[in-house]
Design a protein around this nucleic acid. Structure first.
Lengths: 360, 360
DNA sequence: CACCAAACCGTAAGCGCTTACAGTTATGGG
DNA sequence: CCCATAACTGTAAGCGCTTACGGTTTGGTG
């Protein structure tokens, strides 16, 4: 046991203890050349003292902070009801963050996480403060407008997820069009469905746009009908999907052959509400999702969906950011990862699940 | 459009633009007294320039970094199988983090998130580096040993979650004993079960210990039997619960009246495996959980469980840390939040769920 | 053994900000 | 109208670290 130094340790304490200059300590700590015995003395001093360099000072003197900030939208509390806890539902965004984290860990970076309220229309302040504390930003979908992104990207490296690339920033997304084409083709050509409803996500999200377009294109080619429009407008949340179906059923509107949901979370709400009304899936209506979020897998859902490589999306985003930060050869402006159709039972295909998690 | 300054802006640029000294700029920015017209000039300059102060410099000159680091264990990948994606299962820890985030947001803090691999037995390095980048640490369960916590806590404020308080650190947990007593009493006194198995979590986690003890106490009082021991040892994961049940059934060991799981995640694995073998819950055996994680609620699980105020636990942890950081009156060493028995169907009580999410 | 290059080290400047201190200007009472 | 006092501002030091620069040591060579 050494005596407790009252204040927090600095590089001077280490230098004194090791009998060298602070410059040498710094050099050893950063792995620059120095004589073996100097290295030893410094390292022992560091170890004995339990010295940890101040990140702030390090960052200030021109070094990297080794921090990447991640900004995502926190779903607002939806009105009371079955899905009222939805902001805790922990689905897509969290898996994405895990992926980012994996990428960051590999480079010794830490992640500064910051969520922005859905209703916060000018998160500039928050994002500015994050920019001051980090080396670069990763922005989830719908955090900032394109011009907002462009502005921030002029000051600090920025990577967007499922957004749109700008002059200065890089975007990472998955191949929505391909996945949706596969899915639609399966529904119209494989199953011969003639009417498909598209239960949309946020109307202006690039992902949503790409999915809609692909769906309409393939359906049109096959001569199938696509229902969209106001009443089929969801919000990527289970509560949104549930609300749409409730409205449809209340008004006794007809159901299509298949309900193509903008994402899995929406599909969960849809299937829940259909079940409540005694409508069977896929017997009465087929339902599909998009994303293949883990919770669906764990629960042995039979949901036919399009798998996005969610974690990899996150990891790729970090890698791109890292390239931007270190000034490595500039990554592509728009990085696209492949998607894959996952056929389970909800589209009408025979599918034998291993068994339900929860007996009913 | 002003001309783009090539380098990143500093307080000097603002001062020059506003025609004042950097000290005045700093004072205005930090809300100290100054003449109204000085304030205006500084604020306009800041706005026009789009100035964002450097967090590093701020932190270095003795200020707060306004960053709290959160460290949690990332579950290792379990062997292939149904639950192989479990590190993505996103349950307890994530909700906790959401709570911490809510607390942090209220104080303008950002969160530096860092996970530690389950197999990493000396995360000192990582934690040291975090300490250098933040004002305080929140450690989830099982991140650091008690002595490890004590050591770190001497350098920087530390709050542990579901751990044990030390001389220097504060612990936040929920009232495991109370919840488990209620649950056990319901099972033995309410249902008259005579044999209960406890499917344990990590054996040395304080939460697990408290739950076991409470269960044994109440059961003993009521003259009921408690089965524990090697074969009933789980790991807080669904895969662990599944493995235990598989082993029991393979060896054709008898089942108790009720399987009391250390947490909900375990219960999910248990129920899954029981269902696979055609064993009905609660008809053949009752099953209970602990935590009341949101996924269970969303899916309208019938799981009888004990609700922990997970989010509040997180928010409380941040508040305690904040108190420590700002030197406010020292919070209690061991903060305990109440728990609540949630009776659904899996214990044998009649329970009418609103309907299954996924038609079966 | 003298000399030169290479390898290493210490000195000191500077990163962008806060704040004690001293200097300046406004305020109000006598 | 003068001066004490209050209110504000600018100057400069310092937070802990990295790194350019020049001095010192080391080791190889003739």
């Amino acid at each position: 046991m050494t005596t407790d130094p009252p204040r927090v340790l600095t590089i001077y304490d280490v230098a004194e203890r090791a009998g060298v200059s602070i410059a040498s300590v710094s050099r050893v700590l950063n792995g620059h050349r120095s004589r073996p015995d100097t290295q030893d003395r410094v390292m022992s001093a560091v170890r004995e003292l339990g010295f940890v360099p101040s990140g702030a000072a390090r960052a200030l003197s021109g070094q990297l902070k080794e921090v990447a900030a991640v900004v995502f939208r926190r779903a607002a509390d939806s009105p009371d009801g079955v899905f009222s806890d939805e902001d805790e539902s922990l689905m897509f965004a969290e898996v994405l963050n895990r992926g980012i984290e994996a990428g960051a860990r590999a480079r010794g970076f830490d992640l500064l996480m910051s969520s922005v309220d859905v209703y916060d229309h000018s998160p500039q302040g928050r994002i500015g403060s994050l920019a001051g504390k980090s080396d670069g930003l990763i922005l989830h979908d719908k955090v900032l407008s394109a011009v907002g992104v462009a502005r921030v990207a002029r000051r600090i490296p920025v990577v967007t997820l499922a957004g749109t690339a700008t002059e200065e920033s890089v975007n990472v997304r998955s191949d929505n069009a391909f996945g949706m084409r596969e899915l639609t083709s399966h529904l119209v050509n494989g199953h011969g469905y003639q009417t498909l409803a598209y239960l949309a996500g946020h109307v202006d999200s690039p992902d949503n746009v790409a999915r809609t377009e692909a769906l309409e294109l393939v359906a049109a080619d096959a001569g199938a009908e696509v229902w969209t429009g106001e009443i089929w407008r969801g919000n990527y949340l289970a509560s949104g999907g549930a609300a749409v179906i409730s409205r449809i059923l209340e008004r006794a509107l007809p159901l299509p052959n298949a309900i193509v949901c903008a994402n899995d979370q929406t599909a969960i709400g849809v299937m829940f509400t259909l079940a409540q009304h005694g409508i069977r899936v896929p017997d009465d209506v087929a339902v599909t999702g998009f994303d293949d979020i883990p919770v669906a897998r764990h629960l042995h859902s039979q949901l036919t969906t399009v798998r996005q490589p969610i974690k990899k999306l996150g990891a790729t985003a970090f890698d791109a950011l890292y390239a931007l930060i270190t000034g490595a050869p500039r990554p592509e402006q728009d990085i696209v990862l492949p998607t894959e159709l996952v056929v389970r039972g909800s589209c009408g295909c025979p599918f034998e699940p291993a068994g339900p998690v929860l007996p009913s």
